[in-house]
Nucleic acid binder design. Structure first.
Length: 627
RNA sequence: GCCGACGUAGCUCAGCUGGUAGAGCACUUCACUCGUAAUGAAGGGGUCCCCGGUUCGAGUCCGGGCGUCGGCUCCA
């Protein structure tokens, strides 16, 4: 047989040759450093036979930044962790231990709970294993054999995995530790130069909260100590960009214990908020949306009718009032439907686009709160479009266009990745309804030529949706904009319009938020820009620093000259150097130092970051006008 | 909600085995009148998250609660 190497040359091999055989045929050094085989994007264990004619790329320890090569290293590291834990904690039961983007984890059921301070001990044990050295051996076994083995070892989680496993079952053994595993794994532990256990967490078996909660140990591993250090430095940098830290630091917002999950917005934070609100208002008007306002508090009767009560009762804030149970609205749609129903609608009025950025409340689980990114009180740039079936496509296309415009304006288009969510188990409507609405959304996103992932079963109970996600500083994804096609709620709330045939029809309802929630969007903006906002949303755009007391008047005049911008004069009794430093720390885009040498003909302008220039006021105006 | 960690001045943090709190920055005042990332000095500032318990005595030990952080679950 033969395989094709990356340089397109062909390598002749005996039938049944493995990846390792191929590496040996090329050279002993390559064989020694080989980590895994990649073929057409698929990864394969070195110990497995190659296919005739297959293109083959052998990754080595030198591909230390390759995600697949890293995953193999980390997967093997997870096995070392399990071996160490088994030795240190007799009676522990092992579950699963995969690599993840930033490292790996392994889930255990400990006889006695362990604590974070136990991690160093486990880490030492792993280091001992590394010092001794480990080789991985792979074997294939029959399901019955595998099951027998884990029954004997009293490993119920492994038994369950064997029972539900598909395809051939393989074992990997290092030292005296054998694990059920699909692989691939390293040949031996030599390439593992840095392992660090990072945290401890509870995690439900198979991700289901009805199952037992296991103890998950997180760790990470690299092909070099320097890579680990670089990773830790990156985490440190992300910590500096954290909006929960920058928010209070830049005087934008803060939280209070007496209202968890609801931000208190400071004047400077409101500048950013209002910049987004102004943009929203302006564009909504331009794009034919009608601003409306609906109540904050509703009889729960409404939520029962809409279907929300059955699906999200535990997340709705309730207010008992006499005999009646009221609720703070968790969303705007039912209110907008009542508005739609307030008079007999004609097809001539459609599409009808209601927009409202009202305050919403959702009683989110305590453990899920996360600054502005997961809050209990928030405002969506919400809108509900009522339209006929023929109009649905155009409306959705227009929403994509609008979304692209907004994300471009804010400089975050590249951050967004899309997801199409299809029918969930718990849902309203018939399969035919869902076939139809899912098809429409899929066609729309395909028409945009946008890359997206399909999230089966993740749709809303009333319809499929397209969500746009952005990552925070640590790379955790958050749902931002959303477009949802709803063929159910209008029926439940009795929305109809008169068609040209003089008969009543049910409108389609498209729910959409483009920023998502203002809170979350601002949170992501803060982390994305590290607090150094683009000029047009910066809370303070220009700071004027008079060199001495004699220059105060001139500084104030300059501020008044630039009255259309947010300009502050810093005439504190501090050195110029000090005031510049403070302006830099506050991440103000422009600083103008004004002293004896300055005039309208020549201003000393310093940009955020330190770049300096002398230019006349007129030129500065021109420059600012472009931002 | 669940697992683990944490909660001391506005912020960042120190406070050993229990003996009624400390630094830097910030703030106030005074002096300096200043040219592109920290001028100096003095001063004020604490329900040590809350409630209960142990103890002669609790920031410190124990129990409960709240909040925050890292995960899990959830996220219309």
């Amino acid at each position: 047989m033969k395989v094709v190497l990356p340089d397109r040359s062909e390598l002749e091999l005996p039938d049944g040759a493995t990846g390792l055989d191929a590496a040996r045929a090329i050279g002993p050094k390559l064989a020694e450093q080989a980590v895994l085989v990649r073929s057409n994007g698929r990864v394969q264990d070195l110990r497995l036979p190659l296919e005739d004619g297959q293109p083959v790329q052998i990754l080595t320890t030198r591909d230390k930044d390759d995600p697949d090569a890293l995953a193999v290293l980390r997967h093997s590291s997870a096995h070392l962790l399990a071996e160490a834990v088994r030795r240190l904690y007799p009676g522990v039961k092992i579950a699963i231990g995969p690599p993840i983007e930033t490292g790996f984890y392994y889930d255990f059921e400990f006889p006695e709970p362990i604590r974070e301070e136990d991690l160093p001990r486990i880490e030492e044990e792993i280091d001992r294993e590394l010092a001794e050295g480990r080789e991985w051996r792979r074997e294939e076994v029959s399901p019955a054999e595998a099951k027998q083995r884990f029954l004997e070892e009293n490993e119920p989680y492994k038994v369950e995995l064997v029972d539900t496993a598909e395809g051939p079952i393989s074992f990997y053994t290092q030292g005296d530790f054998t694990d059920l595993c699909r692989g691939p794994h390293l040949q031996n532990s030599k390439p593992i130069k840095a392992v660090k256990l990072t945290s401890l967490a509870g995690a439900y078996w198979r991700g289901d909260e009805h199952n037992k909660q296991l103890t998950r140990i997180y760790g990470t591993a690299f092909y070099s100590k320097e890579d680990l250090d670089a990773y830790l430095a990156k985490i440190e940098d992300a910590r500096r960009r954290d909006h929960r830290r920058l928010g209070p630091e830049l005087d934008l917002f803060h939280f209070e214990e007496v209202s968890p999950g609801s931000a208190l917005w400071h004047p400077k934070g409101m500048v950013i908020w209002n910049a987004l609100e102004d943009l929203r208002r302006e564009e909504n008007a331009r794009r034919g949306y009608l601003e409306v306002k609906t109540p904050l508090v509703w009889d729960v009767e409404l939520w029962k009718r809409s279907g929300h009560w059955d699906n999200y009762r535990e997340n709705i804030f309730q207010i008992p009032y006499g005999e009646t149970l009221y609720a703070l609205k968790p969303m705007n749609c039912p209110g907008h439907m009542l508005l739609f129903n307030s008079k007999l609608r004609s097809y001539r009025e459609l599409p009808l686009r209601f927009a409202e950025a009202a305050v919403l409340h959702r009683d989110e689980p305590t453990g899920s709160l996360h600054g502005l990114l997961r809050a209990r009180q928030f405002s969506q740039d919400d809108a509900h479009v009522f339209c006929t079936e023929e109009l649905v496509q155009d409306e959705i296309d227009a929403m994509f266009d609008y979304l692209g415009y907004l994300y471009d304006r804010l400089g975050v288009r590249d951050l967004a990745h899309a997801e199409l969510s299809t029918r969930p188990d718990k849902r309203l409507g018939t399969d035919a309804d869902w076939d139809h609405t899912e098809r429409i959304l899929r066609a729309a996103i395909d028409r945009m030529g946008m890359r997206y992932r399909v999230a089966e079963g993740e749709g809303a109970f009333y319809g499929p949706k397209i969500d746009f996600f952005m990552d925070d500083a640590l790379g955790r994804p958050w749902q931002m904009g959303t477009i949802q096609l709803d063929g159910q709620q209008p029926a439940r709330l009795g929305c109809t319009y008169m068609g040209s045939d003089n008969r009543e029809h049910m409108p389609y309802l498209i729910h959409r938020a483009l920023f998502g929630t203002l809170e979350r969007f601002i949170g992501i903006l803060i982390e994305h820009y590290g607090g150094a906002f683009p000029f047009w949303i910066a809370p303070v755009q220009v700071r004027v620093i008079p060199v001495g007391a004699d220059h105060r008047v001139a500084a104030e005049q300059l501020r008044d000259e630039l009255a259309e911008y947010r300009v502050e004069v810093d005439d504190r009794d501090e050195t110029v150097g000090r005031r510049i430093r403070d302006a830099e720390l506050e991440k103000i885009p422009y600083v103008i130092v004004y002293g004896d040498k300055e005039s309208d003909e020549s201003l000393a302008v310093r940009q955020r970051g330190g770049e300096q220039a002398n230019l006349p006021l007129a030129r500065l105006r021109e420059e600012l006008a472009t931002l």
